[in-house]
């Protein structure tokens, strides 16, 4: 038997997005599996809405929505047929047509799940998690494979669920997603939570005036990486989502804006972050490797 988790301790509150951030294989999905009642932990305590999720009955399950990492969707079924089937398991489901329309599922309602793109499947999986009108939502890698537009749709929806007071627990290995979505972040590494806090808390600790900043911007996908002298290198984190680390001076920023001007790039969004989650994460990972 392999010990996947060893010292995970976390709490998620209503009206907040709690994120488990970690690299692949860190133990995020296993943690969620325990919290959802799909796995029985060998030790420790798990409470979901005050009950043990593994032995909890249909009443407990009726209050919780789950989106699995691999989707958990039957390939030969059409999206609406699946959503209608899941809807039938609940006494007070949401309005399925409205939910499907909101997530753009109505535009591919008559295609079997097997023939959908990765991003379309993700949206069906998200809808399946919400159809039952849950109070707690577990989303395992909700942004994986999404194009920028559906990514925005999904992010807006998660924000709205939070405003309504739902408890949202999600996992991601993308720093930017964690940064954009989370109220509270647990960094998971090697089956343990090694750091926790709000994004501001996690990133503020070691940031000083002379520390490097990170620039995030959204533009057309597939831009060729420019030669940058002052700033760090350009990384396309997801289609059209770019990151430039190591901006230590106004000159470095000017270097990037002049590259935009040369190439005729007008980004749709720009943000600058002080020391970002990735830096925190790398600091911890290096510390872990040294220790």
């Amino acid at each position: 038997m392999v010990r996947v988790l060893n010292g995970i301790s976390l709490t998620a509150h209503a009206g907040a997005v709690t994120t488990l951030l970690g690299s692949n294989g860190a133990g995020k999905s296993t943690t969620l599996g325990c919290a959802q009642g799909l796995l029985k932990p060998d030790g420790g305590t798990v409470r979901l809405l005050g009950q043990d999720p593994y032995s909890g009955g249909s009443t407990l399950r009726s209050r919780v929505g789950v989106m699995l990492q691999d989707g958990g969707l039957p390939p030969s079924v059409k999206p609406m047929a699946l959503l209608r089937h899941v809807e039938g398991m609940y006494s007070h489901p949401v309005n399925v047509d409205a939910l499907a329309q909101r997530l753009g599922i109505d535009s591919f309602a008559h295609t079997t799940i097997r023939r959908l793109s990765g991003g379309q499947r993700q949206r069906v999986g998200l809808a399946a998690a919400l159809v039952g009108n849950p109070e707690v939502v577990f989303l395992d890698e909700p942004s994986a494979g999404l194009d920028p537009q559906s990514r925005q749709t999904v992010f807006d929806l998660i924000a709205e669920l939070r405003e309504r007071g739902l408890c949202i627990v999600l996992t991601t290995h993308l720093m930017e997603d964690a940064q954009r979505l989370s109220d509270y972040v647990y960094i998971i590494d090697n089956g343990r939570n090694v750091a926790q806090g709000t994004v501001a808390e996690l990133t503020a600790e070691a940031t000083t005036a002379t520390d490097s900043r990170t620039l995030f911007f959204t533009a057309t996908p597939g831009l060729p990486a420019p030669e940058l002298r002052d700033a760090g290198s350009l990384v396309e984190e997801a289609a059209g989502q770019y990151r430039v680390d190591g901006i230590r001076s106004p000159a470095a920023l000017a270097e990037i804006t002049s590259w935009w001007a040369e190439r005729g790039i007008l980004p749709t969004s720009i943000t600058m972050e002080p020391k970002n989650l990735e830096d925190v994460f790398l600091d911890i990972a290096e510390g872990g490797a040294r220790g």
Partner: peptide, 17 residues
């Protein structure tokens, strides 16, 4: 809008068929 209801607005504890 097809979104879940705010938990505070719920009156019954079960939602299972």
């Amino acid at each position: 809008y097809g979104l879940p209801v705010a938990p505070a607005d719920r009156e019954t504890s079960t939602n299972a068929a």
